[in-house]
Computed example of a mutant assay.
Amino acid sequence: MQSPDGDVFDCVLSHLQPAFDHPLLKGHKPLDPPERPKSNETSGTEEIIAESFQQWHDSGGSCPEGTVPIRRTTEKDVLRANKLRRFGKKPIRHLRRDSSGNGHEHAVVFVNGEQYYGAKAKLNVWAPKVTDPYEFSLSQIWVISGSFENDLNTIEAGWQVSPELYGDSYPRFFTYWTTDAYQATGCYNLLCSGFVQTNNKIAIGAAISPRSSYRGRQFDIGLMVWKDPKHGHWWLEFGSGLLVGYWPAFLFSHLRSHASMVQFGGEIVNSRSTGAHTYTQMGSGHFAGEGFGKSSYFRNLQTVDWDNNLLPLNSMHLQADHPNCYDVRQGRNTVWGTYFYYGGPGRNIRCP
C-alpha cells in the first residue's frame, strides 16, 4: 500500500514479522489482548480538540486480518544513516541527567521513587522544524528502570520528526526500547526483533495527520504503555483504545519486574558542538508560557500501579536542560487532570 506521503507499507503475516526472528520468540504467535488498566478519572475533552490519526489510511485503510502493516525500509533510508551500524538506533547515552553535554536537550516532567507499571497521556501533534539532517525533535513517554550509565532499560512511544530516519519532515508515530543504555540492544519501531505488533490498522513509523496549528485547531493522540498483570509483557495502546502490540518481558532486565521512573515531554538533538545553538524546534516551536493553541501540551497524565489502576501523577519533577531554548510549565484542572506545556524555538535572543 502506498501512502500519500510516499511511504510503502507491506501487509506481513503476523507470525512472520521481525519480532519472531528473536531466538526466544521463534515459533510463537502474538498473544491475546491483556486486561486494560482501571480508571476512576473521567477525562473530559473540549470540543476544540480532535484526534489525529495516520496518513497512510488515506490510501486504503488497513491490512487484512492476520497480517500487520510494516513500513518498507528502502536503500535510501539506510544510506541516510550517519553511521550504518547505528541505523535504526538512538545515539548512545542520550538520556543521562547531565544530558546538556551530549547534544540531547529535554523539557520534561517525571516521577520517580515508586514502582510503576505503566503510563498514560494525551499529547498534541505538531510538525516542528528540524534544521539539520542528523537532528530530530520528538515528544514521547519514557518508562524507565536501571542506571543511566550502562544498564538502562527504557520503553518509549510518541511522535517524532527525524529527517535522517524517515527522509522527510512529517511527525511520525514511533516506538523505541533498549536494555543497555542504547549501546547495542533495541531499536526504533520494527527495525529489529523485539516488539510484537498485533494491530492490522496501526502502522508504526507512519506519518500522523492532521497536525496542530498555531492559533488554529489542535489535534492530539492518546498513548498508554502498561504491564500486563497476567503475562508481564509491556503493552502499547494508541488513540482511543487501539492496542498496537507488546514488548515481551524477557527483552528486559530491570523492566522485567517494574519501572522506577516515568517521564513525559520533549527532546531534541543539537548537533552543533560549538558556536550557535540549533534552530531545531521542540513541540510547536513556542515556549510553554504561550498556553493553549500556541504551545505543545501533554494532558491527563497518569501512571499505572501494581494493581493495574490508573492514578494521577503525584510529586512531579520538572526539568528543562536549557530553559532559554526550551521550557516546561505544569498545571492541573478538572478537564485535563495533570497537564503541562513545553517546548520552544531553539536558537533565539536568550538562546544564542
Results as ranks from 00 to 15, higher is better:
Y341R: 08
W234S: 05
R71G: 02
S43W: 13
W235R: 00
D58N: 11
S213W: 08
S59H: 03
H94K: 14
I70S: 03
F292S: 05
H22K: 05
A121Y: 05
G291Y: 09
S99P: 01
W177L: 12
P312S: 11
D168P: 07
H15Q: 15
V130W: 07
M261S: 10
Q160T: 12
L310Q: 07
I70A: 02
S39A: 15
K29W: 15
R217Q: 04
Q160Y: 10
L251I: 13
N348S: 15
T42P: 06
P210T: 01
D228F: 08
S260T: 15
V109P: 03
M1F: 15
Y170N: 08
S253D: 14
L25G: 02
A184T: 12
G241N: 03
S62Y: 11
A259S: 05
K29R: 14
F287D: 00
N82C: 12
S169W: 04
R217W: 00
D321R: 04
K129W: 08
N102P: 11
F264Q: 03
H317W: 13
V68S: 09
F264Y: 15
E35P: 01
W126A: 01
G61R: 04
C63R: 11
G44Y: 12
F264S: 04
Y214W: 11
E164P: 02
N270F: 14
I144A: 09
G337M: 12
G194N: 05
K90D: 04
Q115T: 05
I70M: 07
T280N: 03
C325L: 07
S193T: 00
N40C: 02
I49E: 09
G205I: 05
Y279D: 00
K29D: 08
L243P: 05
N102L: 13
A121C: 13
S39L: 06
Q55K: 15
Q17G: 02
Y246T: 03
